[in-house]
Design a protein around this nucleic acid. Structure first.
Lengths: 369, 369
DNA sequence: CTGAAAGCGCTAACAA
DNA sequence: TTGTTAGCGCTTTCAG
């Protein structure tokens, strides 16, 4: 069954999808606009001047009432509020911001929306930002420093109150733009390196070390790694480094490793595990770049009747729900993703001094190791 | 192991986290700002006037060059561009927008960031929006119409070029604000009801009907349902309606059903399946509100040695990767989430006439039914 | 091809 | 407590 692109040309002429006939937007189809930066001029909007006139007061008085700032009599207040409501006044923050300096916009740049890590961070940050009356402007960099730079440029054009970025690695120009803008900056999710201003996260190297220590303590000695290209995910590379260096301290090195390209993480985990196992059957434990891949590996084991962890131990990263509720809870590391977003946003809004905040992590001793 | 809240007070005094000593933002700690709407005034920024002066041309000429609009000599162009680069000029879009009317902001309101459905839509929309030189301002409504209304209000204050909302259900005032604003509106992910302007999605009732037809065709007759509160997820309710009405047409009704509260979807799926099965052991197939829950149910079956689909068939919704790569691929419905975001954004930017676009869905005949 | 001048809608002194 | 007056930084006529 495949019901694709059944496109009804106009809602108005389609009785099966009754549209509200009183809605003016439906009656004005608009024309094609190939050039992007020229959308319809908004319908004539009510301005503060009109509200003031309708209320019979001066502009500044109306402004004061509407912002509840400064002084005015109860009577004026009443009249202004009534007029604003009656006219359907929606303040123009663009004008407001220009006049007063300082927007309520906060720029957030994340590498990806596919990866739950970043949507969690975004969720945490947005909750705080929103509660404080600010608004999040989000950009997705696709793990590309040049896209990050471009997004920083265009966001800075909106004079955001602050900026939040993922990680500590940025182009020189990005750093320059940011520091020249005077906006506060929070760098999230990584502690392993120098930051610009606020740094909130946990040590990725640390999580790798912890994972290695855990597997070593459990007696595993023939360990493999399954991950992705580190150029794309720098923090996974830091975890790998921590993991490998801890193995080295125990006089060990990875038995085998596999780096897969793009595509589904779960799928990559499944096929990668199969590949590793057939290439290096002696492997007794696998460290994955993240839980998605680890779950894929777990699925391979289930499908191929490989005993976990007796024959093969699995260790992930992130503590996703799907691993937590698997028949055998996945051994992994819980990272404080939502708190990272929340804390970063809060410190920014509180005007906290430049500092590094380590939110730590927690090793989850599941049933797959 | 639990490494929590190790908070280093100041990056500058912490040798273990070497900060860039040349970065000025690090040397000015800033002071506490309890009142949110008063972040630091941005550092003195270069204005167009200064660029023009430095280049020895008039403001309007500089403006024309910088926007590459209107006419100017190659020589002037050179001088202006050089001056802008030298001074590190970052155009102020707030002023630009105020002067010219029409921002490049597009407001996107989604119910949740936890649910991959909405991050997929956001991802699709953002890709198009971004490529066209616009910027996404996102808000999360938490499935609450009043929060949606509040967010619409504050977004409209930024005079967005367009707005994108999830679903067709909105408060009367939300509708009013939107249509009064003159901004184009796209409602996403649902077709089952009247829309305001652009409507892009698929029929949720249709997916429910398809799921029911599929299970009936497979011979299942004792069917149960596992989901969440419909007040929260209206579209899940529509799927349920489609499902149940199709069963009714076959003279059947649900054997049992369970509605779980909040918390992990996978976890809810697992415990809910267990509950349903012990309460109504005769159930031979389970329809889930989404794949996360279905995977939870599948995990329960794996853990309890319940043969899938021989003893119990499972049917989900959304076609997530995790179901696709499970030992037995999950039977589900693939929804065009990313396309919904992309298409909505593109139609908005193209100034397409008000219409309903049905992107359809695809039933995935997996191995769990 | 270029510059002067008039706002965009609002806020912020400053008087009254 | 209220109104008047300058701008915020930019775009946009409209002359030159």
């Amino acid at each position: 069954m495949n019901v694709r692109l059944r496109l009804r040309r106009n809602a108005l002429s389609d009785p099966s999808n009754p549209a509200d006939p009183t809605d003016p937007t439906l009656t004005s189809p608009g024309t094609a606009r190939p050039e992007a930066v020229a959308l319809p001029a908004p319908a004539a909007t009510v301005t503060l001047t009109e509200v003031a006139a309708a209320a019979g007061v001066g502009e500044s008085t109306a402004s004061r009432v509407l912002r509840n700032h400064g002084s005015f009599s109860a009577a004026t207040r009443e009249r202004v509020l009534e007029a604003a409501a009656r006219l359907g006044y929606v303040p123009n923050r663009i004008a407001g911001t220009l006049a007063s300096a300082g927007s309520n916009l906060i720029g957030i740049l994340i590498p990806s929306l596919t990866n739950i890590v970043f949507s969690d961070v975004l969720r945490g940050a947005n909750a705080v930002i929103d509660a404080a009356g600010y608004q999040a402007v989000v950009g997705v960099t696709d793990y590309d420093p040049r896209r990050e730079e471009a997004l920083v440029t265009s966001m800075l054009a909106w004079r955001p109150a602050a900026m939040m970025l993922a990680g500590l690695e940025h182009s020189e120009r990005t750093r320059l733009l940011l520091s020249a803008s005077g906006a506060r900056v929070a760098e999230l999710l990584d502690l392993d390196g120098p930051g610009m201003d606020l740094v909130v996260g946990f040590s990725n190297e640390g999580t790798g070390e912890a994972a290695a220590r855990h597997l070593l303590a459990r007696g595993y000695r023939r360990i493999g790694y399954l991950g992705r290209d580190f150029a794309r995910d720098i923090r996974a590379g830091k975890r790998y480094r921590g993991f490998v260096s801890t193995l080295a301290q125990a006089g060990l090195s990875l038995v085998d490793e596999e780096f897969l390209g793009s595509g589904s993480s779960v799928g990559a985990g499944r096929t990668g595990t199969q590949a590793l196992l057939s290439r290096s059957p002696a492997i007794d434990a696998l460290y994955f770049a993240n839980d998605d891949m680890a779950i894929g590996g777990y699925f391979h084991c289930l499908a191929s009747n490989i005993a976990v962890p007796e024959r093969l131990a699995l260790f992930g990263h992130n503590a996703l729900d799907v691993g937590r509720f698997a028949p055998r809870p996945l051994s992994t590391v819980r990272t404080p993703r939502v708190s990272v977003g929340e804390t970063g946003a809060r410190l920014l809004l509180d005007g906290a001094p430049a500092q590094v905040v380590d939110l730590g992590f927690e090793l989850i001793d599941g049933a797959t190791s």
